[in-house]
């Protein structure tokens, strides 16, 4: 079982961005059975208050606030502090975006914000690049997990370079959560096969033609990939290797 900062969690994590109604949230959560659900923190003037949080609480799901959209360490730290106050959790998925076109992490600001938040008592789960050196820096400043991207947020391109995820896995001894880029179930399984401990899926579920069916597919894929990882895949070979015995063939 996956354990983050002493808390056991199911390995399928769900983002809620793009879900159209609270009823869909309910049905998707039911199908995904996520270890946690991420939410963003936004001005009440743009959101109305309370309802999403109330629904998630009712479903008994752990809520992980994020700092999505923050462009610098200072903004991310304030957003995390507001999230802690609003949601009553000191866990935060730390996102510090370097530019709004690529939505790639600004890793310098990210490490700085992570260090500040850890010092203020937060359990920090940073969204980061598939870079083992940065991952190690994040763990050095006290992050409880690292969340490398498979490909850019919302792109649905899967894991662009599997070696980066394997390198992050090898570099740190905290949980590795694949975050961003998943487009379909096989890619979530792939993340687990590469050694991730959990997969966060948002757009691939919320903007699927049938979000409820995709939520279930993702949950099964994450479970499958985790099982396959633990079962141990066969090595890749240059040439064929017969699986049936060569002796005793008819007419030989």
């Amino acid at each position: 079982m996956l354990e983050v900062a002493g808390v056991q969690l199911a390995p399928m994590w769900l983002g809620t961005g793009g879900l159209t109604s609270l009823e869909t949230v309910r049905r998707v959560v039911d199908a995904a059975r996520p270890g946690l659900v991420t939410v963003s923190v936004r001005r009440t003037s743009d959101t109305g208050t309370g309802s999403l949080l109330a629904t998630l609480r009712e479903l008994g799901i752990r809520v992980l606030p994020n700092t999505a959209g923050c462009l610098g360490a200072q903004e991310a730290v304030l957003t995390a502090e507001l999230a802690r106050e609003a949601l009553g959790t000191d866990w935060v998925k730390l996102e510090v975006i370097g530019d709004e076109l690529s939505l790639l992490p600004d890793v310098l600001e990210l490490v700085e914000a992570a260090e500040t938040l850890v010092a203020r008592g937060f359990t920090v789960l940073p969204y980061t690049t598939g870079d083992p050196v940065v991952a190690r820096r994040l763990v050095d400043v006290g992050c409880a997990a690292v969340m490398p991207l498979g490909s850019p947020i919302g792109s649905g391109r899967g894991i662009a370079d599997p070696h980066t995820i394997e390198a992050v896995r090898a570099a740190v001894d905290v949980p590795v959560v694949l975050d961003a880029g998943i487009g379909t179930a096989s890619e979530a399984a792939h993340a687990m096969e590469l050694g991730c401990d959990a997969v966060l899926v948002a757009t691939a579920v919320t903007r699927a033609e049938d979000p409820v069916a995709m939520a279930r597919a993702m949950r099964l894929a994450v479970e499958s990939g985790g099982l396959a990882r633990r079962a141990g895949r066969i090595p890749r070979r240059e040439m064929a290797r017969a699986s049936s015995p060569m002796r005793g063939r008819v007419g030989r």
Binding site: T16, T38, R43, S45, T49, T79, E81, E85, A180
Partner: peptide
């Protein structure tokens, strides 16, 4: 700076103050 809920009644507002009021919203 965050103002905790317990401190809201005793926090006066002044001309030019910048107030942010936030809540959880759907998001990745």
């Amino acid at each position: 700076s965050v103002v905790r809920a317990a401190e809201w009644p005793a926090t006066p507002l002044r001309e030019g103050d910048m107030v942010e009021v936030v809540t959880a919203h759907q998001g990745g």
